[in-house]
């Protein structure tokens, strides 16, 4: 409860008050409908506390030795990482991803990404990719830290720097992001996938929302013919049955005959296979109907297998 209050206070101080639905209303274009929204707040009070302490200590130590400026820079970077806000709006046309961080607040800038739903090719819900920048920085920082420790002789400073190396290890752990699960969207035209909730993790329910919207959108787009002018029929369920079978089924009235035609059309089988496939029916019934169909000249036996004529 205490943590929750602190978090709300901090976000309130830094980002101000905001209402997700009101922001979404401003973003919508004409005839666009808002479907669902998501706010991902990444907040790490340990990081903030540590970075404040390090910052203060390093300011003190700079009077002693200039090496202590490095921890100050690290603490500044840590503060940037410690608080991040992701606002994601899903409409029936697009996904809008807005990122807010301390750096953006200071520089008074905005970062907003708007993706069209029908350009999303692959949806992936998996472990978040490594934060490479942070990994490199923390590794380099660790190496520099160890070098400095081996050079200097001030015992207090050594203790301080070795404490900082633990912080760097924490950053390394954060950069690996082993615990976070994010939604990765591969969009046509962008080489790298777009991630949602890489630092905090995104809920599965939002993935389901996106998925439903993406396929709903595609469902409404009709399949257009090619420019070449050649037309061929596009069927939504191509494995159901062929155009030949469709024509025959429309003619027939007996449901069992229709069923047999469907089975023969979809599976390349002989009579024994048909018995196995329709095991609920008696063999004599199947034989009788097949002979009727043969008599009507709808089925032909070719290479020991039943084929629709």
């Amino acid at each position: 409860m205490m943590r929750y209050k602190l978090r709300n206070k901090l976000t309130g101080i830094i980002f101000g008050k905001y209402d997700l639905k009101k922001i979404a209303k401003n973003k919508l274009v004409h005839d666009e409908k808002f479907v669902s929204g998501l706010e991902i707040i990444y907040y790490n009070e340990i990081m903030i506390f540590i970075s404040i302490v390090i910052g203060l200590l390093s300011i003190l130590f700079t009077f002693n030795s200039l090496f202590a400026i490095i921890p100050l820079i690290i603490s500044m970077y840590l503060i940037f990482l410690s608080l991040e806000l992701e606002l994601i709006f899903l409409t029936d046309e697009r996904i809008i991803i807005e990122k807010r961080g301390i750096l953006e607040k200071i520089l008074n800038t905005q970062s907003e990404l708007s993706l069209s739903l029908d350009q999303i090719a692959v949806l992936k819900y998996s472990r978040a990719p490594f934060h490479r920048q942070l990994l490199y920085i923390s590794l380099i920082g660790l190496i520099i830290n160890f070098i400095i420790i081996s050079v200097i002789s001030d015992l207090l400073l050594i203790l301080f720097l070795s404490a900082i190396s633990f912080v760097l290890f924490y950053m390394l752990w954060f950069g690996l992001r082993l615990n976070k699960r994010s939604i990765e969207l591969s969009v046509i035209g962008i080489n790298l996938p777009v991630g949602i909730g890489r630092s905090k993790g995104a809920p599965m329910s939002f993935l389901v929302d996106i998925q439903e919207m993406v396929f709903e959108r595609i469902h409404h787009i009709s399949h257009s013919d090619t420019d070449s002018g050649i037309k061929y029929q596009v069927s939504e369920f191509p494995l159901q049955f062929s155009s030949k079978a469709k024509a025959i089924i429309e003619k027939l009235k007996d449901p069992f005959q229709q069923h047999l035609i469907k089975v023969i059309d979809q599976n390349n089988i002989n009579i024994d296979g048909l018995y196995l496939h329709c095991h609920r029916f008696e063999k004599s019934v199947i034989d009788k109907t097949i002979q009727e169909l043969k008599h009507k000249n709808l089925i032909v036996e070719k290479d020991d297998k039943l084929v629709i004529k």
């Binding site: 692959v122 819900y125 998996s126 472990r127």
Partner: peptide
């Protein structure tokens, strides 16, 4: 733990 779900459109 590190499982991932991919859906290819």
């Amino acid at each position: 733990r590190f499982s991932s779900l991919i859906s290819f459109n």
